[in-house]
Design a protein around this nucleic acid. Structure first.
Length: 590
RNA sequence: GCCGGUGUAGCUCAACGGUAGAGCAACGGUUUUGUAAACCGUAGGUUGUAGGUUCGAUUCCUAUCACCGGCUCCA
């Protein structure tokens, strides 16, 4: 059997059968649901009908049992189900209701069973499965059970919650070890850990889950990114606006939020007037549009805002900076004519792609279509979905279709960013909306003199500042490039007594140039300060100052992760540092 | 919201029925350093919160808040 990526899925799927066999042998009451291969591993869902919950200890026992089964050198054999109805009732009588349900669905697809058989030809276990599998268990050499989690049968929260065991398998022990090492490495990059370690942000119980306190360090990173964002928007023809945090409920009745987004909204009662804490910025931008008359010549109108919104999330959904209740969207709304639409969408795709590639990030694209709860006519929705598809096709971008995942007012193009652990997060999104302009009755005057309804695009590049920072922290593993680093240079005098005066002058000089610099004149050893600055605080540069440097009017530079890189005249260092900062991520010094 | 797990000093962890201990950080002192952890000392906690069981609770039980791994949902 050739050992490539495709066959790895087969190996994993086969290992999942062994997992099921082990579980049923240790827990005869366990009923089998499904056990597919997934990216980086596989899982199997079980219904432990007696309410027992798999523990860490159980995982060890199950893993041992699997090793025992594998050692028996069993063969996998396919078996065609001849009488489906008989097998369904057999499954039912065994209590295998999930298998029965699956077989019922696949009864016209020539369903097969896979059996594991020992050397004497005894069948030990069977599972409804289309296959294929590895020929026998000698192929299964390197696997590990990772974690237990709850999962709804068929992913529907109306169904029973099953217990899912996540695991992984590889062709060799070395491959397995490499993957486990990767997971460990990813854990170190977790933005929540780095957030504490680097004093970036905190989330306090007293404030509430999903509400972020930005510490000075992360606020600095954000400031740099926002400055870049503003500058880039002006270049690309956007105008920047600001809008309030609350508005009367009536505004959200017009937009449709009170009926389609209610569960996510916070309401504020003020005497007999009800207000809503804004979950989105769009209605405000529409009102700004309404303040003036527009013609086809003056469109597109591009309004951008770093708008802070609040959304009530289901309690289990919150996660670090990735999923919060209060967040700032780098939002924009573009009002345009149908003729301008494709160019506008393409310009946004370029904007997203330019921005993400500046950070060296990769992304996948998805097109999300009409959800169950929506406003507007099917005709408008079809037009909108076609428009987005056309724009993506013109760009030649590859994308997946995500049925029913659009916003309630329009379909969207989503850009999925990967975090350190390989989880994907929605970052940038472009949403095409024929509906809100109609609901608010906004118009423009076309070349034929007629008043027409403009098309509206909602879009974000970073998604939210919070989530993007989370991804950024993990992306850089906390070692921000110089332009973003909260502290860019740490000055370390070798002897406080002899060198601090000069170090102070260097500090003032760098500070006057707008460089984020710190002088470490604590009574600590030089080695300690260097280690703390470079390793713990992940500051890009340490400037060491001693007799020789004072003599030469210079600084000895040590760079994060690189060690000593040389002695620079102070002015030369400043020039190079400024170049590096300006380059936004490209290393100049060294 | 659901399933499972976890909340002990600023951080990382220990003790697990007999009223809490370490390392790092902090603070004080000594040291003044030539390139990734100098030395000594001090202080710091109603063990997330509220109830309950018990002679006695950080430890057991219940509720609640928060976090973690997932599911569902989403920027």
């Amino acid at each position: 059997m050739e050992k490539n990526n495709e066959s790895l899925h087969i190996l994993r799927h086969s290992t999942s059968h062994i997992l099921a066999q082990a579980v049923q042998s240790l827990f005869p009451q366990a009923k089998l649901a499904i056990g597919p291969s997934i990216e980086n591993g596989f899982y199997y869902d079980f219904d432990l009908t007696d309410g027992h919950a798999f523990s860490e200890d159980d995982l060890v026992k199950i893993q041992d049992k699997m090793i025992e089964i594998v050692k028996q050198n069993l063969t996998f054999e396919q078996y065609l189900i001849e009488d489906v109805e008989v097998k369904i009732s057999e499954f039912k009588s065994q209590g295998e209701i999930y298998k029965a349900e699956l077989l019922e669905e696949h009864k016209n697809d020539n369903p097969t069973l896979y059996l594991t058989k020992d050397k004497s030809g005894n069948f030990l276990f069977n599972d409804l499965c289309a296959g294929p599998h590895v020929p026998n268990t000698t192929y299964i050499k390197a696997f590990k059970l990772l974690k237990v989690a709850g999962a709804y049968w068929r992913g529907d929260e109306k169904n029973k919650m099953l217990q899912r065991i996540y695991a992984t398998a590889f062709w060799t022990k070395d491959d397995l070890k490499a993957h486990l090492d990767f997971l460990e490495e990813a854990e170190k990059r977790d933005h929540r850990k780095l957030g504490t370690q680097l004093d970036l942000f905190s989330i306090r119980e007293e404030v509430g889950g999903g509400l972020v306190l930005w510490h000075p360090n992360l606020a600095t990173v954000r400031e740099e990114i926002e400055n870049y964002w503003r500058c880039e928007h002006r270049k690309r023809g956007y105008q920047i606006v600001n809008t309030p945090h609350i508005a009367k409920s009536h505004l959200w009745d017009i937009s449709g939020h009170t009926s389609h987004y209610r569960d996510n909204m916070y309401f504020i009662q003020d005497e007999d007037q009800e207000y809503v804490l804004k979950p989105m910025n769009c209605p405000f931008h529409i009102l700004i549009y309404q303040a003036n008359r527009y013609s086809y010549r003056s469109l597109p109108l591009r309004l951008a805002e770093l708008g802070t919104v609040y959304r009530n999330e289901r309690s289990g959904a919150l996660a670090g900076l990735s999923r919060v209740k209060g967040f700032t969207q780098d939002d924009a709304h573009i009002f345009c004519t149908p003729e301008q639409l494709i160019d506008e969408i393409n310009a946004i795709i370029d904007f997203v792609s330019d921005t993400l590639s500046m950070f060296g990030m990769t992304f996948d694209v998805e097109l999300s279509t009409r959800p169950e709860s929506y406003v507007g006519t099917i005709d408008n929705w079809d037009k909108a979905e076609e428009g987005l598809k056309k724009a993506l096709d013109v760009k030649g971008m590859k994308y997946e279709i995500n049925e029913g995942d659009g916003a309630f007012y329009g379909p969207k193009i989503d850009f999925k960013l990967k975090d350190a652990i390989g989880r994907t997060w929605q970052g940038a999104t472009i949403q095409l909306d024929f509906n809100l302009p109609e609901r608010f009755g906004i118009k423009y005057q076309d070349s034929d003199g007629q008043l027409k309804t403009p098309i509206m695009l909602h879009r974000v590049i970073f998604g939210s500042m919070e989530r993007f920072m989370g991804i950024l922290i993990e992306h850089y593993a906390g070692s921000f490039p110089t332009w973003l680093a909260p502290t860019q240079v740490c000055i370390v005098p070798i002897s406080n007594e002899k060198h601090t005066d000069f170090a102070q002058k260097v500090y003032e000089k760098l500070n006057a140039e707008g460089i984020r610099v710190k002088l470490d004149d604590r009574s600590e050893s030089m080695n300690y300060k260097i280690r703390e600055a470079l390793q713990d605080k992940k500051i890009p540069y340490v400037a060491v100052i001693g007799d020789k440097e004072i003599e030469a009017n210079a600084v000895a530079i040590r760079a994060r992760g690189k060690g000593q890189i040389g002695v620079f005249a102070i002015d030369e260092f400043i020039v190079k540092l400024a170049q590096e900062i300006k380059s936004k991520g490209h290393e100049v010094i060294g």
